[in-house]
Amino acid sequence: MSLAAVLRRLATAAVTLFGVAVVVFVLLRVAPGDPIAMMIGPGASEADIAALRARYGLDQGLVTQFFIWLQGLIAGDLGTSISLRSDVLGLLGQRLPATLELAGAALVVALLVGGTIAILGTLARRSPGEAVVDGANGLLLAVPDFIWALAFVLVFAVFIPVFPLTGRMDPTIDMDFATRFFLLESLVRAEFAVFGNIVSHMTMPVLALALPLAAIVARVLKGALIEAMGQDYVLLARLKGKSELRLVLQEALRNALPATLALTGVQFTFLVGGTVIIERIFAYPGIGNMAIDAVINRDLPLIQGIVLAFGAMFIAINLAVDLAVAALNPRLRHG
């Protein structure tokens, strides 16, 4: 990818982010309810209300309001949460790491599971085994994370209680974390008991998020692998006496990856979006769970901050994938 192409792609991302900001602004302005009235509650004097109105520019026109809002946004001022009476940016900083760890772990699991299914399917191609793999994958494709999560709740928390049902770790755990990335930090600091506790809390939500993505990875990767296995360079390697498994892992996989990665990126944004409801089901303290409470409490500043955070994450993922695919694919590199 040339520098100009990279810059063009960055500009597109910036325009999209601006568009997201506009949509969030419009959505929240058409929402019923007076934001000021919610902010200070009953018993406020007329003068107080007028002063707050002026401060947030609500006495100005809609376009002026937008630019006042945008200015604050750029300065990092996302306002104050009405229901939690706390700085929105601070709340995001506190909760976002939990969501990032959840989504990141789910991505890794999805790639591992999906990759394994694809390789098994490729090895079993044109045999009865392929139909079994495809059938299982078809089922994975059809079932959304919401259903997986609740099925896991029934099976692994009620019928055979092996995993804890809610939270990020046991409340009894007493460890001074320097960051909010509890999973990573406990691993880096070799606190394996804490790490294991966090992993067992994350198992069900991570699997629920990962399985639908794994199915998509498996299908795309399997198609690409089978196509690659028919290429001349694989034939050459086969003539040299390499085993089928080695052919897949050492020859075909490298060439099948870029196409898979491109698709995985887009689908990963759906996984990140899925954290909202999955965090809710498992009472996991991330921004998705907080988002639902914010909506139920009509906490407009908080809703706005969370939606923007998700939007920025989505745009960043798409951008990163586009750049990575361009970097991996020699045919596009000089495009």
Binding site: V20, V23, L27, G273, G274, I277, V307, F310, I315
Partner: peptide
Amino acid sequence: VDIWMAFPPVLLSILLVAI
């Protein structure tokens, strides 16, 4: 479509219904 895809669908649906 690009702008739309930048919103998490579940969150957007909850937001819309709330509005």
